[in-house]
């Protein structure tokens, strides 16, 4: 049942040319060099240290690696990170990443 609704959503997204993050509740990331990172659509902090930040997503999780990371500001759906960002990894995105 859920896979059917997802297929319909994908179809409408393709047909209507709507951004995928709106339809699938996917995170949208805006990155300025390796200094600033702005993430929308997160579901909370899982782990935070100065070299690693793990964020929960609606499906799966996001890992930001780097050094001297600082959460400049955090709201319910958005987070604004500063510091030296080395890598970003996405885990468990399932078929959405196909």
């Amino acid at each position: 049942m859920r896979s059917i609704s997802r297929k319909i959503r994908k179809l409408t997204a393709d047909l209507l040319d709507v951004p995928q993050d709106v339809v699938f509740d996917l995170p949208r990331m805006t990155m300025i060099g390796n200094r600033q990172l702005y993430i929308e659509n997160h579901r909370g902090v899982l782990q935070f240290s100065s070299d690693k930040l793990r964020l929960a997503l609606s499906k799966g999780e996001l890992e930001v690696g780097g050094s001297e990371l600082v959460i400049r500001a955090i709201w319910t759906e958005e987070v604004f990170i500063e510091g030296q960002i080395d890598h970003i990894q996405l885990h468990g995105q399932g078929e959405g990443t196909k």
Binding site: V45, F48, L69, V70
Partner: peptide, 21 residues
């Protein structure tokens, strides 16, 4: 459980800023 505190604060709309370790 620092992360949990941050999540709870965020959902309560408590504005934490410049969080660093």
């Amino acid at each position: 459980r620092q992360e949990e505190l941050v999540n709870e604060a965020t959902s309560e709309k408590i504005g934490l800023s410049a969080i660093r370790c």
